[in-house]
Simulated assay, not measured.
Amino acid sequence: MSTSENGIDLGDIVELTNPALESDVELAFEGALRPRSLGEFVGQSKVRGQLQLLLTAATMQQRTPDHILLAGPPGLGKTTLAMIVAHEGDRPLRMSSGPAIQHAGDLAAVLSSLVPGEVLFIDEIHRMARSAEEMLYLAMEDFRIDIMVGKGAGATSVPLDLAPFTLVGATTRSGLLPNPLRDRFGFTAHLEFYDEAELEQVLARAAQLLELTIDREALAEIAGRCRGTPRIANRLLRRVRDYALVHGGGAGGADVHSVMAALELYDVDALGLDRLDRAVMETILTRFGGGPVGLNTLAVSVGEESETIEAVVEPFLVRIGLLTRTPRGRVATPQAWRHFGLSGPEAALTLDDL
């Protein structure tokens, strides 16, 4: 079996016959694609510099780093950065998530079992129960918690000292965090979408780890279709790898033509729109004359939940200029009409329309 630069056996997936072994290899792929240090991490240069300073200062002073909040859209590397914080300081890492902590007792069990210097990563921290959030205030500030023993008039509060730890919280909606919790983080990093040059670097590194031979033009084609998100870039690269293995006779190479054919097969167009994105835009353009159309009406028309449309689809369509939100509903822009090859309003929206 071949070995990646991170020491992970990659193997030839085509020769696998055991489904369990195949699953293990796919998990190894996922682990191999994650950078292990800030030096390997591509993009987010400002955040990397800030984190490097914070971690280096903590090491020099022989203390635990300040608590860190990582905010930004999904797929930009929040979990990876949490792993790097632990790895760079040679500290153990404990991982949990906000939805899994629905009672103060759940959080108390996690906090009381931490060892000195451990990094606690809580993904989607804004979804924790309110009682757990209130317990976290004291734990972050004074490294202790108060546990209630007994019920009713005989209940007493027992203080429990905690080992010093670093909390790394990740959130896609920082506005939902209560101010007392947000203010207790010593450093807040706001992750931005990647540009195409950075995504090409991400893809080149991933292709090397996946032992996929791919040219620069093909990398640029993938980079232009992955919404500025490394997670999507790596996912599309793996689909290109699969296509190259199947249609290239197992040669393990991909050119721009195979990239375009693979992405067309998986319904990813030149702007990165997928099936649901196009369904939303085509519904607005063809059924409602470009809008305005309300969110609930739009969701029913495409057969999806309104929360999915609002949280998953709309942010990207608005960011690339195909859709505008107005008080009267969603409106397609002239650029959307041109992209879908339809005749429609060519004039830009006026201030009265917004």
Rank of each mutant, 00 (worst) to 15 (best):
V256W: 02
S343V: 13
L298H: 06
S45H: 14
I84P: 03
L76Y: 01
E192W: 04
S4F: 05
G175V: 05
L349P: 10
R338T: 13
D161W: 12
T213I: 03
K78M: 03
I145L: 02
F143Q: 05
P19G: 04
G303H: 01
A109D: 11
A233L: 04
F340W: 02
G250E: 02
I101D: 05
L219N: 05
R127K: 10
G290R: 05
D215Y: 01
E307P: 08
L51G: 01
R241E: 08
D269S: 13
L111I: 04
E26Y: 13
I232W: 05
T308W: 09
E211C: 08
P116H: 08
E264R: 15
V256A: 15
G253H: 14
T213F: 01
L237Y: 02
D123T: 02
A104R: 04
L176F: 10
V115H: 07
I145E: 00
E346Q: 13
A223F: 05
L236K: 05
I122D: 00
D12H: 00
I68N: 05
R48W: 03
G11Y: 06
V168L: 09
E264A: 15
E198S: 09
A100H: 06
E124D: 08
Q50K: 06
R36I: 04
E15Q: 14
I145C: 01
R205Y: 11
E118H: 07
S174G: 15
E282H: 00
P327G: 07
E304D: 14
R278E: 08
M281L: 11
G303N: 00
S23A: 15
L54F: 04
A197L: 02
Y137M: 11
G117T: 07
R91C: 08
L273D: 01
L93F: 13
R278A: 10
D274K: 07
Y243Q: 04
A129Y: 02
E310V: 12
C226F: 01
R287F: 05
F143T: 02
S45T: 13
S112C: 10
T326P: 06
V25P: 09
G49L: 01
A57S: 07
G253W: 12
H257L: 10
P19R: 03
P116F: 09
E200H: 03
P73H: 11
I147Q: 00
S157D: 06
E200S: 03
Y137N: 10
A20V: 14
G294D: 11
D123C: 04
T80H: 00
Y194H: 08
D9V: 15
R325N: 12
G224H: 13
L354P: 11
F193L: 13
G248D: 10
L351Q: 09
R235E: 09
P345G: 09
G253M: 12
L21I: 13
E133G: 10
M95R: 12
Q44M: 08
F316I: 00
L219F: 04
I145S: 00
V14D: 12
S258H: 05
A332T: 05
G252D: 05
E346I: 10
Y243N: 11
R330Y: 15
L93T: 11
